[in-house]
Design a protein around this nucleic acid. Structure first.
Length: 555
RNA sequence: AGUUCGAUGGUGUAACGGUAGCAUCACAGACUCUGACUCUGUUUGUCUAGGUUCGAAUCCUAGUCGAACUACCA
C-alpha cells in the first residue's frame, strides 16, 4: 500500500480546477526561458514542475522561448536549453517562440490603440522614469498621453516602418499613472530597437516588451496554468488587464518561490560574470550550478529530478542546503555506479613475503548494490600503491588502517600485517612494509581472522594513470549574494584541485566520457568530456560521507 | 512610507479546527572485505500578544520580522 503523498499548492489548484470542470478538464503548462544564458538548477526545478504537472494530469507542456530582446539572445542558448531539458528527461509537446507571435502582438497593440488604451509617447527613457512616481507618490501623465487614436495609429505604423531611431518613441498602455502598482502606470508595450533578431532577422525594428508578450503568448497557446516565480506576482494584474481588454483566452498565472542553493549564486547575470571573467572555464564548468555544469560534473538527471521532488514547492523565501542535492546524487550513484580502486595520494606498500615474480588475478565485485553488476579482474603483486593517509606510524586508538603491528584487509585480496616503514632523510614515509596471510585470500578465507579495516590499492606494475580534478564548492560562504561587498570576493580559491597523475586499476583505463564510477572510499567520479583514451580525465562528482574525517575533527 | 507576498526543528516541506509528520542534517549504536551503503534509536520546531472555540500551526485582530516592486531586461 502506497502512502498518499500530500499535494503541493499548485497540484491543489489544478485538482480543484479539474473538479470544477474548468478548461474542459485540460491542463496545459509551459516552460518559458529567455535564450540569453544557460539553464541552472533553479530552472531545473521549474522544468520538473511544469513538465511534471502536465504529465501527472495528462496534459501538455510547451517549450516557449521568450525571445523579445534581440540584443541579448542567441541561438547558442536555444540549443543548450533544448539539450538540457531533454537530458533532464522531458519532451515538450510544442516548440514555440514569442517571436512567432510578433505579428499577432502588433495586431493586439493596434487593437488597444483603437480602443484608446495605448498611445505613442515621445518621452525619453529618463523622462518616463522621472514621471513614474514612486511607491509613495503617484506618477505624472505624459504630455503625449491624449493624442488622438488616428495619430497614435499613424505614429505606431511609422515606428514599425523604421522612421525613428532607437528610443525616440515608445508605445505605452494607457492605464493609470496613480495606480499603487507601479507596473500599471502606463507600462511600455513596444520600444524601437534597430537590431537583428536571431529568428525574425531584420523584419522588425520595434520589439514588444516582455510584459506585453508573455501573458498574451500564454493566452495564444491556451496555457491553462502559467507557472512562474514570485517576482512576477506584480505583473499578474497587468497580464490580466491585457487579456481582458483584448478579450483573449484567460490563462491564469500562479507564482512559486524560486529555489536558492547554499554555496552558490543563481542569477544569470552573476553566472555570466563568472564565465566572462574566467572565474570558471565556461557555462558547463563542473563547478557551475548550471544543468550542463552539473551534467559534466557527473550529477545524474535522476538525482536532479529526485532533488526537485524532495525539496517541494511553496511560496516562502528559502535557501536549500546543497547537502540535500548531494544526498540525492549519492543515493542514485550508490545504486548505479561500479566500484573501482584508485589511489589519489600514493605511497608504496611492499609485501615482504610475497614472491617478486608472482602475481594474483582477483575477481572483484563491480557493485555490491547491484546483484547483476558483474565482476572484473584486478591484478595483484608484491608492490602496491596505497593511500598515504592509510598508514600512520603512531596511530591513534580508533585508527583501523595500517600502523606497525596492525592487520588490514586489502580489498578483494589478502589480509596483511604491517611490519614497519622506510623513511627518507626528512622523515617522510617512502615505503610501508607488510607480510600477507596466504589463507586470507578473498572469497577463500580460512584464516579465521577478523580485521576492522579494509583499504583499497593498485598494483604498481599494472597501474595506469589518469588526471583527476577534485571539485569543491565554488564559494566559501553559504549565501555569497548576501554578504558585504561583491559576491566574487567569496569565491573558494580551492574549488578545483588538479591531481595530474593518479594510479588507477588497469580495467578503469577503458572508461569512456560520461561514465560514472565510485572510487572506493574516495567518492563518485565521472569521466570528463575532455578526456581521451591517451589522457583520461576524471571529475570528482561528490565525496563519500566520511565518518573518520568527522571523528578526527572532533579531536 | 505605499502595494503585494510570506513566516512550522539547522535546512527543505506536510498537517486544510482534532496525536505537529516526512526527508536531510546532527548525535548515539548495530552491521560491514568501502569508517560507504543499510538498519535501530535520540535531540531540535508552529514569529509575538490577544481573541473565537470543548479544542488553534490552522480562524479573527494587532504587532514583529523577511522578501518583491519604482529597467525602452526578462
Amino acid at each position: 500500500m502506497s502512502e498518499e503523498k500530500s499535494l503541493n499548492f499548485l497540484e491543489e489548484i489544478i485538482e480543484n480546477d479539474l473538479a470544477e470542470g474548468k478548461n474542459n478538464g485540460r491542463v496545459h503548462t509551459r516552460f518559458p526561458p529567455e535564450p540569453n544564458g544557460y539553464l541552472h538548477i533553479g530552472h531545473a526545478t521549474s522544468i520538473c514542475l511544469n513538465f511534471g504537472l502536465a504529465k501527472k494530469y495528462n496534459g501538455k507542456c510547451n517549450l516557449r522561448f521568450d525571445d523579445t530582446n534581440p540584443v541579448t539572445e542567441e541561438t547558442e542558448y536555444v540549443e543548450s536549453i533544448k539539450e538540457d531539458i531533454k537530458w533532464l528527461g522531458f519532451q515538450w509537446d510544442n516548440e514555440f517562440y514569442a517571436s512567432d507571435y510578433f505579428d499577432k502582438l502588433f495586431a493586439f497593440a493596434v487593437t488597444l490603440i483603437k480602443k484608446g488604451l495605448a498611445y505613442v509617447d515621445d518621452s525619453t527613457a529618463e523622462e518616463i522614469a522621472a514621471t513614474k512616481g514612486s511607491t509613495v507618490t503617484p506618477g505624472i501623465e505624459s504630455p503625449y498621453r491624449n493624442r488622438s487614436i488616428e495619430e497614435n495609429l499613424r505614429l505606431f505604423e511609422e515606428m514599425r516602418a523604421g522612421k525613428y531611431k532607437d528610443g525616440e518613441k515608445t508605445l505605452r498602455a494607457r492605464i493609470d499613472m496613480t495606480h499603487p502598482n507601479l507596473l500599471m502606470r502606463d507600462p511600455l508595450m513596444y520600444r524601437i530597437k534597430n537590431e537583428h533578431h536571431h529568428r525574425t532577422g531584420d523584419k522588425w525594428c520595434i520589439y514588444p516588451m516582455y510584459d506585453f508578450a508573455h501573458g498574451q503568448s500564454d493566452s495564444i497557446e491556451e496555457i491553462t496554468h502559467s507557472i512562474c516565480t514570485l517576482e512576477f506576482i506584480h505583473h499578474r494584474p497587468l497580464y490580466n488587464w491585457f487579456i481582458e481588454q483584448l478579450g483573449i483566452f484567460p490563462s491564469h498565472q500562479y507564482e512559486f518561490a524560486r529555489r536558492n542553493l547554499t554555496y552558490t549564486v543563481m542569477s544569470k547575470r552573476k553566472l555570466l560574470q563568472l564565465v566572462n571573467e574566467n572565474h570558471v572555464s565556461g557555462w558547463n564548468d563542473p563547478r557551475m550550478p548550471t544543468i550542463s555544469g552539473m551534467r559534466r560534473r557527473g550529477y545524474p538527471a535522476e538525482a536532479l529530478r529526485q532533488f526537485s521532488d524532495t525539496i517541494g514547492i511553496a511560496k516562502r523565501e528559502n535557501i536549500v542546503d546543497i547537502g540535500l542535492l548531494e544526498f540525492c546524487v549519492r543515493e542514485h550513484l550508490n545504486k548505479t555506479s561500479n566500484r573501482v580502486m584508485v589511489v589519489l595520494d600514493p605511497v608504496k606498500l611492499v609485501i615482504t613475503n610475497y614472491p617478486e615474480a608472482q602475481e594474483d588475478i582477483f575477481e572483484a565485485e563491480n557493485n555490491p548494490e547491484d546483484p547483476n553488476g558483474g565482476t572484473r579482474k584486478v591484478p595483484f603483486s608484491r608492490e602496491l600503491w596505497i593511500e598515504r593517509e592509510d598508514f600512520m606510524e603512531n596511530p591513534p586508538k580508533k585508527f583501523f588502517r595500517l600502523g606497525p603491528g596492525n592487520l588490514v584487509r586489502l580489498k578483494s585480496a589478502y589480509i596483511v600485517k604491517c611490519e614497519g616503514c622506510k623513511k627518507d632523510e626528512q622523515g617522510n614515509v617512502t615505503e610501508v612494509h607488510c607480510s600477507y596471510i596466504p589463507e586470507s585470500k578473498s572469497g577463500h578465507d580460512t584464516s579465521g581472522l577478523n580485521v576492522k579495516g579494509t583499504i583499497h590499492w593498485v598494483s604498481v606494475p599494472h597501474a595506469k594513470t589518469a588526471e583527476v580534478r577534485m571539485y569543491d564548492r565554488l564559494f566559501k560562504v553559504e549565501d555569497p549574494s548576501n554578504e558585504e561587498g561583491n559576491f566574487k570576493d567569496y569565491i573558494n580559491p580551492d574549488s578545483m584541485h588538479v591531481l595530474p597523475a593518479v594510479y588507477i586499476e588497469p580495467e578503469l583505463a577503458k572508461a569512456i566520457a560520461g561514465e560514472r564510477v565510485q572510487f572506493m572510499r574516495k567518492g563518485y567520479f565521472c569521466v570528463d568530456t575532455e578526456s581521451t583514451p591517451d589522457k583520461l580525465i576524471f571529475n570528482r562528482t561528490v565525496t563519500l560521507k566520511d565518518a573518520w574525517a568527522k571523528e578526527q575533527k572532533k579531536g
